[in-house]
Amino acid sequence: MSGICGNVLVTGSNRGLGLELVRQLAESPSPPLQIFAGCRDPNGPRAQDLRELAQKHQNIIIIKLDTSSEASISEASKAIGPKLKDGCLNLLINNAGVNIPGALADTGEKEMVDVFVTNVVGPMLIAKEFLPYLQKAASQSVQHTGMSCRKSAVINVSTLLSSIEKCHETFTMAPMYPYRASKAALNMLTRCLAEDFKKDGILVMALHPGWVKTDMGGPQAPLLVVDSAKGMLKVISSLTEKDTGTLLDWEGKSIPW
């Protein structure tokens, strides 16, 4: 986890993996200057754990952010901008996501569209909205060469289930059409952003957290959220320009598209 510093934004921070990422960042030996924890309803009951965590760590700033709403994303950017030292955002973790489990018979237009809005459109709009802050961070980083999360990076939380090459291995255990298709689209978004942002020195990659025991992953998942987050942050802190545009898992292993 060493090497992650500056200002960080984590979406979907009120529970599960997002909450644990914020917790481990805040409790690390060299914590970020500011951790912006985005969640849909900061004052609601589902954000109770996040509010308690923020009371313990002054560098955690809870931000109202609904990744399925373009207006909410814009308002979050306006709220965060003035709080950024020198207008720099060093690390953006697009963690917010939804899963509507469904075989083909259970999947209709609404299910597909709702999942795509959160899992693909949301990360795109957030990257677009926060790009000026990421560009500023990259341009003002004089002590770090190349690409890294210490300079400027976007991490999109993807999944092994997004892999088209491995679909024949994983489909039977999880025939989730909206989730799989949306995360495959997120992978393409990641590749596009990586090419687009390369000129600015901004690293962009996709990261699979593993099958994690969360509300989304379910009780049968073999991986504890604390271990997944620890592994993810270790991978994130070690990323260099060779990793931009890639899909890795929480242990740093490459996953085929």
Rank of each mutant, 00 (worst) to 15 (best):
M124W: 14
T240F: 13
A37V: 05
T214C: 05
S28G: 07
K198S: 12
L125A: 11
L104Y: 13
L186D: 00
L91G: 00
C39D: 02
E20D: 09
C192P: 00
S228C: 03
E251M: 13
S152H: 10
I126H: 09
G12Q: 09
G210N: 01
T214K: 10
T240L: 11
D66M: 11
L224V: 07
C149R: 07
V120T: 13
L203S: 10
M176N: 15
D114E: 14
N187P: 02
S69Y: 04
D114H: 08
G122K: 05
S163A: 15
L50Y: 03
Q135T: 08
G122N: 04
R150F: 09
I80S: 01
V113M: 14
I93L: 00
L25I: 00
I93R: 03
L233E: 00
G231W: 05
D86R: 14
S30V: 05
F171N: 11
N43W: 11
P45N: 06
A174R: 12
N95F: 08
N156K: 04
L186T: 00
I100N: 09
Q220R: 15
D106K: 13
K242V: 10
I164R: 08
P219A: 11
G44A: 08
K128N: 14
I93D: 01
Y177K: 02
M124T: 14
C149Q: 04
P45H: 07
W250S: 04
L189F: 06
L65S: 06
Q58T: 12
P29V: 13
V204F: 04
A184M: 09
K198M: 09
E109W: 14
G108Q: 06
L223F: 07
A76M: 01
S158M: 08
T145D: 11
T67E: 12
K56F: 02
L9E: 04
K85R: 12
G218P: 01
L134F: 04
G245K: 11
I73Y: 06
D49P: 11
N119G: 08
N14P: 06
F171G: 03
P32Q: 13
H57M: 09
A194F: 03
P32V: 12
S141L: 07
N43C: 15
P123C: 02
A174Q: 12
L186M: 06
D196S: 12
L91W: 01
A37K: 05
N119D: 13
T107F: 06
A206T: 01
G201V: 04
L203R: 06
D41S: 13
S237E: 02
P29W: 13
C5V: 07
P32E: 12
N119I: 10
L233C: 03
L91V: 01
D227W: 03
K198W: 09
E251H: 14
S30C: 10
Q140G: 11
G97P: 06
T172A: 15
G108V: 11
S163G: 12
G217E: 02
N156A: 10
L160Y: 10
I61W: 04
F171A: 14
V98S: 11
G12M: 06
S254D: 00
I4R: 01
E27V: 03
S74T: 15
K56H: 11
L224P: 01
W257F: 14
W211N: 08
V235P: 00
C5A: 08
Q143G: 03
